[in-house]
Design a protein around this nucleic acid. Structure first.
Lengths: 219, 219, 219, 219
DNA sequence: TATGAATGAGGTTTCATTCAT
DNA sequence: CATGAATGAAACCTCATTCAT
């Protein structure tokens, strides 16, 4: 597990059973997460991967290209998983719960990539930033569609924009990479259950006679 | 208002009525938010501030020092506001609502700083990272204390750890800097109201007979 | 006493009873000796002297000027002392011994200045380098004159150029600043006696039947 | 041959037949001797060597590293030569003469390095200063051992500490770089003979009835 | 495929000195 | 006499990338 206090995990010997591109991706994921994209030099990268500089430039056109490969890996994986849950049978409530809990679980399992995802977007070339944003938006829309469906069916409250609820949720998920340590804590599945639970509670319409939200306490 | 699509706002003429340190902080906040800390050269910085490099190093010991000053500004401001709401009269529900809506409001008003806050923490020196984390943790604890209080009084549900709820909330707030554009959208106050509302809904105990959260739909 | 291992002596509080120029000279002597002329910034200098930068530039036109003042102090003092011994009554042998022992003694008493003298000459402006070299040469000539006198009188051997002997001697004296530590060693006067003794032994004509210098043992 | 008056020798075209590190060492030796370590910029250095800055940092980790390489070259060469003479056959007198004359000869042949050696020690990092001092001390001890040997055998006088005699000698040798011009003067071998001669004369015991060193003439 | 020496532009920082007050 | 903010040139060094082998 990674640490989130800014210190770095000890270097690990490169896994020589992997192919060169995978060794590089693996080292990049770890190093970019630990010290940031710009603090990681190509030399450190290839040393950690047990590869030479020339070899790296054989497989990746640039350091930026390596970063982008990490984004692609995350985007593809998350979209594929979301599709599984969104397309399953069940009520919107059930499907949203499944998807919401799963994204937490997989995020916890890939904390390095998540940390990189939100921290280093601005280091990509403009074209690639745009491409990533577009894919991310599609993912977001797919998720939101489940919420909209539940609103139409009356399962979810309609007085809060679906967009707000979804955005809030993914904000929280993304934020995991800032505080989740892993060791001696809740498992990814447990956190996923809590998170999904909170999401659904927030979307559940108030019972008649339920407590009204108060106005501001100050000013 | 800033944009969140990676492109940059047009350069503004430095406000010559401000003192040199303030001109620098102002330019730094804008540039670090737009192109990132490491993509902003000291030369760009001082040019944008209408100041010479030597003048900058007269007031700040390093580029890192300038970044840290931004962190301090955010931390001080947020803690001061939280204290106002936390210490006000009212039920935990009312005080939590006030604090939760306010942090969204001020976050929207200082999107540049917020974006920097979470994106560039790893660019600070180790000592300063530690200091920022510590102050941030205190802020977080202060917020959580309100939730705990409401749990003891029975206003809030006790089956979700307070820590999870608070962390989730701040994740969402922090995430604002990734998607909130400002122009032609909800105002900061409106977003704050929605966010606080969702938070309180999530913390409100289920009415007897209310819908149970479903188990996972897949797997 | 100073150390010769490259480490620095602890900072001393500036002696506020001295006039500003003297405080500066005192601090400069210490700092230039400890960390070298170029490693000492004007800011460190004025801080150590308990003076402001403006005050320094009031009395000295440049950092170079301050360095030159140290050279002048050394040159004046040494020439004045040499004149005392050279002009005294006595045989060349006696006068040379006196001057030779004295220069060692005063060198040991002013190790900082001596260290600076030989190490930082090249940091002076060209004009000043020339001036210092000229004065130094005069000093040297004055000393050599005593040797020449002794050669003419037959007290000193004539088969080694006087220049060589004198140069060798001052080389050794200058070198004191590299190895003489002061604490728990010979006093300056003792070292002076040994040095002068060796000089005179070297200049004393061989007794008839004395050992001849051997040829080279190798090659 | 170099000059010792502070002016600089004209630039020479870099010898393109040498490898890059050697070209750099060669240029560094010349420039550091002429204008001093800190007055020589890395840019000047690489220009003189006909090399780019990047190439330099490929072979040397820093400017300091380049300086240290010069120290190592001197130390290694001198120690190797001393070992040849110290381990040769012959009386202490013969071996000391050989070593003493040789160190002068090689010093004159490498005046640039010698000048750098004693002038720029304080510009090395602390660790390296310590390392150089240690090696230098070993060299010194090896030389002194010959003197001690001669004292035990009665060849050398015992009333002056061997340390003093040796230190004095090396002071003189080191000082050569301050005054020896080379052109139209004594050759290195000649100066070596004179120096060694003076050293041995100084160490030779006084004949019975020889002149006593006088007491101080003044004070 | 793979190497690693070499490039060269650009980075942050230092610092002696000036000058309005 | 003294201040200290401001200057601006120049310093050392890094690093992604290229290319001859």
């Amino acid at each position: 597990m990674q640490n989130t206090d800014g210190s770095e995990r000890p270097a690990t010997a490169p896994d020589r059973s992997l192919a060169v591109p995978d060794r590089l991706l693996s080292a990049a994921s770890r190093l970019f997460a630990d010290r940031g994209f710009e603090r990681t030099s190509v030399q450190e990268l290839v040393s950690a991967a047990g590869v030479t500089k020339g070899a790296m430039y054989h497989y990746f056109t640039s350091k930026d290209d390596l970063l982008y490969a990490i984004y692609q890996r995350v985007l593809t994986m998350q979209m594929e998983r979301l599709n599984r849950f969104a397309g399953a049978r069940g009520t919107p409530r059930e499907r949203l719960y499944g998807a919401a809990a799963d994204v937490v679980h997989t995020t916890v399992d890939n904390l390095d990539d998540t940390r990189i995802f939100f921290r280093s977007l601005h280091m990509l070339s403009d074209d690639r930033q745009t491409a990533v944003r577009k894919e991310r938006r599609q993912y977001h829309e797919r998720f939101r569609a489940i919420v909209e469906e539940g609103r139409r069916s009356g399962e979810f409250r309609a007085d809060v924009p679906a967009d707000i609820a979804v955005t809030q949720y993914f904000g929280a998920v993304h934020h995991l990479s800032t505080w989740y340590h892993g060791a001696g804590e809740l498992t990814g599945a447990q956190v996923g259950a809590y998170f999904a639970d909170l999401l659904l509670s927030g979307l559940t319409p108030d019972e008649p006679g339920g407590a009204d939200p108060p106005g501001p306490a100050v000013q």
